[in-house]
Design a protein around this nucleic acid. Structure first.
Lengths: 168, 168
DNA sequence: GAACTAAGTCAACATGACTGACATAAAAGC
DNA sequence: GCTTTTATGTCAGTCATGTTGACTTAGTTC
């Protein structure tokens, strides 16, 4: 029956395939973030705190403007979240040496501990999916997701990849 | 230099790889939804409205409880959004025949028009990424994302795939 | 007839985003 | 050296989307 449909409208399967892609992104992101959300709920933190902790942990010494660029939110939005994290001792701000207007961000030991806890959960999920799918599928996963990302951030990924060497 | 690191700590590359997976999901989802968000902003609708329109369009005649199960939000959250969509003539509710307690949901013509507009934008993004990546990569993308999705929803995908036949 | 289920409602609240206006300090440009 | 730009922060108000909890109404099931 679907074979007939496919013959009548050759675009049908293509649209179906694309819609499945859309749904896969929706469901996988929903379930992927759900894991960490549960951990954060205990600490009265939200997804926004997680993102800050993640990226500050990933790029220690980054300036506030850089972080805003990654998160693509306004500084007013960030300030509440970042303020809480600083106040509760997860993130430390130190004036920049080169440019003393900057407040460079880094995780405290407490912050690193939370970062590890959150990342461990998510890395475990990704690792499970990677193992189940195999190396070739992982390569495809990366290629397609890269294609969904805007030019600028995509470049960052590709640079890191070649700079890191030894990967493929 | 990174080669040395990899030899000293064999887990380094693995962790790096997993973190890249996490970031790919974050950035791709951010950019992927950004496209539709801009269209919705004109109509004073948000992402929540989009999800309702999408899934009602995908499964015409579905009951409210089913929709809640897919979205994994509370009925109170849904009611506001659904109420607006019904009021503004995007979604129609009709009592179920088998079970008259149910209000079965379907898009109106107006709703289908918006659905097409939104989906066209996202399908275009996915299509572009698929084309650039190639069929093999797409298969890997699907496999890995399926592995990130909870058991139950994953089954739904796999059933649809085999039922639809003719795909692979 | 009692118990359960589908759907909806009212109320209060939390989170995370936004715009707009303004303040301070340091850097950069002329 | 004065002006302009930049980095950061703050105050105030608003909006969208989620939550919990309590309760109602109507229909189904046992």
């Amino acid at each position: 029956m679907t074979d007939i449909k496919a013959q009548v409208n050759p675009l049908f399967l293509r649209e179906e395939e694309l819609r499945q892609g859309i749904e896969l992104l929706f469901f996988s992101y929903r379930d992927f973030t759900g894991e960490a959300d549960r951990i954060l709920a205990d600490k009265a933190f939200g997804r926004a705190h997680h993102r800050v902790i993640y990226f500050v942990g990933r790029h220690p010494g980054m300036a506030v403007t850089q972080l805003l660029g990654i998160l693509k939110i306004t500084k007013q939005s960030l300030s509440r979240v970042l303020g809480q994290l600083v106040e509760e001792g997860y993130v430390r701000q130190t004036p920049g040496e080169r440019d003393r207007r900057q407040r460079l961000l880094e995780l405290t030991e407490k912050g690193r501990a939370l970062e590890r806890q959150l990342s461990a959960a998510q890395m475990e999920m990704v690792a499970r999916a990677y193992r189940a799918a195999g190396a070739e599928a992982v390569e495809g996963f990366r290629t397609v997701l890269l294609g969904l990302i805007n030019e600028e951030d995509r470049k960052r990924f590709l640079e890191r990849e070649t700079a890191g060497g030894a990967k493929r």
